[in-house]
Design a protein around this nucleic acid. Sequence first.
RNA 1: GGAGUGGGUGGGGUGAUCGCUCACGACGCCUCGUGGCUUUUGGCCCCGGGGCGACGGGGGAGGAAAGUCCGGGCUUCACAGGGCGGGAUGGUCGAUAACGUCGACCGGCCGUGAGGUUAGGGAAAGUGCAACAGAGAGUAGACCGCCGAACGGUCACGCCCCUCGGGGCUGACGCGUGGUAAGGGUGAAACGGUGCGGUAAGAGCGCACCAGCGGCCGGGGUGACCCGGUCGGCUCGGUAAACCCCAUCCGAAGCUAGACCAAACAGGGUGCAUGGUCGGGCGGCGCCGUGAGGUGAUCGCUCAACCGCGAAGUGGCCCGCUUCGCUAUCGACAUCCGGGUAGGUCGCUCGAGGCGACGGGCAACCGUCGUCCCAGACAAAUGGUCACCGGCGACGUUUUUUCAAACGUCGUCACAGAACCCGGCUUAUAAACCCACUCCCGAU
RNA 2: CGGGGCGUGGCGCAGCCUGGUAGCGCGACUGGUUUGGGACCAGUAGGUCGCAGGUUCGAAUCCUGUCGCCCCGA
Length: 121
Amino acid sequence: MNRFSKRDRIVRGDDFTAIIRGGAFAADDVLVVNVRSNDSETSVRLGITIPKKTGSAVVRNRWKRWIREAFRINRDRLPTGLDIVVRPKRDAVGNFAKIAKSLPSTARRAARKLDRQEQSD
RNA sequence: GGAGUGGGUGGGGUGAUCGCUCACGACGCCUCGUGGCUUUUGGCCCCGGGGCGACGGGGGAGGAAAGUCCGGGCUUCACAGGGCGGGAUGGUCGAUAACGUCGACCGGCCGUGAGGUUAGGGAAAGUGCAACAGAGAGUAGACCGCCGAACGGUCACGCCCCUCGGGGCUGACGCGUGGUAAGGGUGAAACGGUGCGGUAAGAGCGCACCAGCGGCCGGGGUGACCCGGUCGGCUCGGUAAACCCCAUCCGAAGCUAGACCAAACAGGGUGCAUGGUCGGGCGGCGCCGUGAGGUGAUCGCUCAACCGCGAAGUGGCCCGCUUCGCUAUCGACAUCCGGGUAGGUCGCUCGAGGCGACGGGCAACCGUCGUCCCAGACAAAUGGUCACCGGCGACGUUUUUUCAAACGUCGUCACAGAACCCGGCUUAUAAACCCACUCCCGAU
RNA sequence: CGGGGCGUGGCGCAGCCUGGUAGCGCGACUGGUUUGGGACCAGUAGGUCGCAGGUUCGAAUCCUGUCGCCCCGA
């Protein structure tokens, strides 16, 4: 049962800036993913950010829904204990299949990068 | 059949499944409060509030939700009033909560027509503007042309007079002064048009008709205005989306409005003041005097002069007014500067509401009755997948003389996302469909 | 939610208030100079003034609407 309710989301503006400033990131043709460990070890929290440059309100809403749905479907395949912030790659043209394929792999790459950073510290 | 005008509908559908969000219902757990019981720290019960979890059956984007161009509701602040300034609007009547919106009508312009379009008050209140061209651009003007009536000049081998210097008459010239606005030419625009008279030539200079303007009268219309008559001077140009004038309207800011709770931080400045001085008048009070009266760092009112006239508000300015204040200090308060916070609850969706019927009105719209409840998020909910159906397009196969039809595969189905709520305007928009009307051609 | 600005040759700007001629620099092209290039000199071309209406005799300029871009404030 893959749900996605309010507790699974990143809501506060401070959290967003902390994750983007302080974590690791990875990207491919479609998505840019920022990652930072949270305290919980098991849960994954998602934040979505869509710049105005992306397009009209309809286009931005579509991206957000696609990313959210991709997160919900692929929850088992994501690394745990992380807060992740996802945004569309600049100028990328998306569809749901591409996003659903891209999100888990990009998130795992970002998580590995975060591990290396923490070990080197 | 062709061409066109005006307006409207519409915004893919059904099902399965996994999710999101909101309120409701019943359940479990946690917690808070009043009360009760048992009272040993404590435990139990009733009622109410809050939170979390899972369940059930429901609601869940638009005609433009958009742009934010107008107008309102609502909220907070301000407000006795007046003047100046600023902004908006601009035919009439109506509709409306209101509007810069809508309806009907009037006038202008465009179109053969259905219709379209129109910031459409004032230019005899004033100021300004009009490049180039042209003679001249505003109570204008004489370049070419026309004229030779008037004044001057020149000429005459024309006539007359004479004091022999000359003078006058007549004619010519068009040289100067001048007349002319008909014709040419310039321009977007040059102070009406046609005809006759008139004149040196001309001219509204005069007359007739026409156009325009203005006054008056009659008729129609609520009105804008229309129709008819009559008179007048004969003509008085354009531009106000140039300044301006006139009429009407307009307090400001916005749901981060605004109210409350929690958390956090760092305070500081200003005001808290009020009328003063001198003089006159009137009255009170104290003292003096038997009394008229006199006198006073005294009180109140009032007059004149001079100085002064705080802060805030009154949208900017001014007058005026209002509020605060009355010994000092502190506090409170007001205001300004600075600092902290970006969490929660309310506002928050039932409304100038939708739909239907009837009635009133040409219509915009209004009234009555019935009926319905239709999103409330806050890093912000309506999405993902699959199947079938529908519209459109391409290709293939089959049927068919052709038009076309059937089946299959693939593609495609717009513009666009609520954020306090309404009324409009504007802009975007794939098909598909409907209604009314006009013109032309053909047939009957 | 509130406020402000911009749109003119290929690029960067002026002209707009106060209507009539669209100008400047860089760049482009042609010719000269040079052995050749650069620099320099001379000349040439190139603009629906974002778009659509309106006012006016006449609009880049005035008015209205509209489209796009940028920047502030809360």
